[in-house]
Design a binder for these strands. Sequence first.
DNA 1: CTTTCTGCAAAAGCTTTGCACTCAA
DNA 2: TTGAGTGCAAAGCTTTTGCAGAAAG
Lengths: 148, 148
Amino acid sequence: MQTQRSEIQLLRNQLTEFMQANHMRKTPERYAILEKAVELSAHFGVDQLYNAMEGAGYHVSKATVYNTLELLCQAGILNRHIFATNQARYEVARGSHLHLVCRRCGKIREVDEPDLTARLLTDAYDEFHPEYSSTIVYGICDECYRKS
Amino acid sequence: MQTQRSEIQLLRNQLTEFMQANHMRKTPERYAILEKAVELSAHFGVDQLYNAMEGAGYHVSKATVYNTLELLCQAGILNRHIFATNQARYEVARGSHLHLVCRRCGKIREVDEPDLTARLLTDAYDEFHPEYSSTIVYGICDECYRKS
DNA sequence: CTTTCTGCAAAAGCTTTGCACTCAA
DNA sequence: TTGAGTGCAAAGCTTTTGCAGAAAG
């Protein structure tokens, strides 16, 4: 996909700039993890990314995955959410959307809400410097609803 | 506080109705946990509630605390949020507000946003039945911001 | 009485930490 | 050369699970 390839290039540059600005080392692991993160569909967990990399024959330690994902969050490239499962999930910080999370089966659905989420970040909260937002609506999905 | 006492009475009734409707047992533990939950300030964790009960000389097992908090969520009495810490936090489901979470020190600040949060629950999402929402704005609090 | 709920302790996950080694700068 | 970054394994936390015993209905 041509679109995705150019997006990766953009994000690689963004990461490089961030690391340069903060005097960090540009290791191959970090770029590899970034690439796999973009490749995965939205909302991947740590294990999912780890396994995907193993599957692709590229080995990194879990600790490095954790470290790098945190780094990518700080660089503004990824957003980190925690839904009902006590398990961090990451996604590339592109469009603004909110998450519908089923409290029964855990299924997550995205809904575009650009206005809503944009507003959260531009609102002037006294003495607070927003980076990104996480909006979750908990409820029951239709499938589970019908079963009860 | 008279206001709080009547609120507790209201919530006790709400819990009773819910348990009756679902053919559940009305155990003293459940009412005791509800009462302590209302007593605590917003955003308590499981341990915080557990310790508060121990301190008050009322012993319940951790498992029961977990079970009951989940029950209270289902009854619509509590809302459950997970912020950056991988630790569930609960609050009595009263006013609508969002949460400003500092990614550095973990401090949580509430901001009233009745319109915003109300809208999340009334929006017509296809095939989804909303119960409550959790809006988090991650960023850096002023205190941490000045240190860097 | 019966079946749900509780208590206790062990197990299960996810994430963090410590330390030796590696490699980007 | 040197200290930040990585790998590995152990430790730490929160949460879940299993089972025996208690008690609500």
